[in-house]
Design a protein around this nucleic acid. Sequence first.
DNA 1: ATTTACGGTAAGTGAATTCTTACCAACAGT
DNA 2: ACTGTTGGTAAGAATTCACTTACCGTAAAT
Lengths: 101, 101
Amino acid sequence: MNSYQQFALDALGDSTRRAIVDRLLRGPVSVGKLAEEFPISRPAISQHLRLLKEARLVIDEAQGTRRVYRLNPEGFETLRSYFDQFWIMALTAFKEKVEEQ
Amino acid sequence: MNSYQQFALDALGDSTRRAIVDRLLRGPVSVGKLAEEFPISRPAISQHLRLLKEARLVIDEAQGTRRVYRLNPEGFETLRSYFDQFWIMALTAFKEKVEEQ
DNA sequence: ATTTACGGTAAGTGAATTCTTACCAACAGT
DNA sequence: ACTGTTGGTAAGAATTCACTTACCGTAAAT
């Protein structure tokens, strides 16, 4: 497991950040817009976005004074392939166990 | 997103629990054995296992006074299919954005 | 029946995280 | 140049979370 996956799982371990990710699924948004939609302050949103960005789950882009965030499909692809692999290993281990009996 | 997936992501949001999961990938273990292999106390291990169990990521089975934990492939399968779906949605959203330009 | 092994739970402590307020920098419009 | 808008960062408060010690219940062994 590489370190970005570690960061990604840490990042997704918080329900607020998962809610942000769910919101970004509906399209890119600016920080201020996000803060309006959530019950926490704008700096709090910024901090969550920083973690999501470090985990490569989101990308940001400057648009004038605004900063628009969107999902990073590559980050999720990495995570998905990890789960694919993991699931295969878990299933294999499980099958071996069953066949032993 | 159903609630088990929420619990699963919360559970995998901790590095110790991820290490436990990695260990279980090598096969089923008892609580005491797990505690020996980790630098934390047995009750701490028990508490982590409870969260992993609530998230349906592990299954436990009594063997005498021992309690053996193993991975639950179904739990990981659920999570994997979530990521499959998520990734598709994220990719679609991303493509739409690109095509707009 | 007692003892030993094993593991779950409760309560409290310490550490890590999340949040807020205050402040600052960058860009756009007047 | 000045003003308003936007958002990142710092510092500290508040909350959450992981961990330990202490205790209890259950099952096997003597």
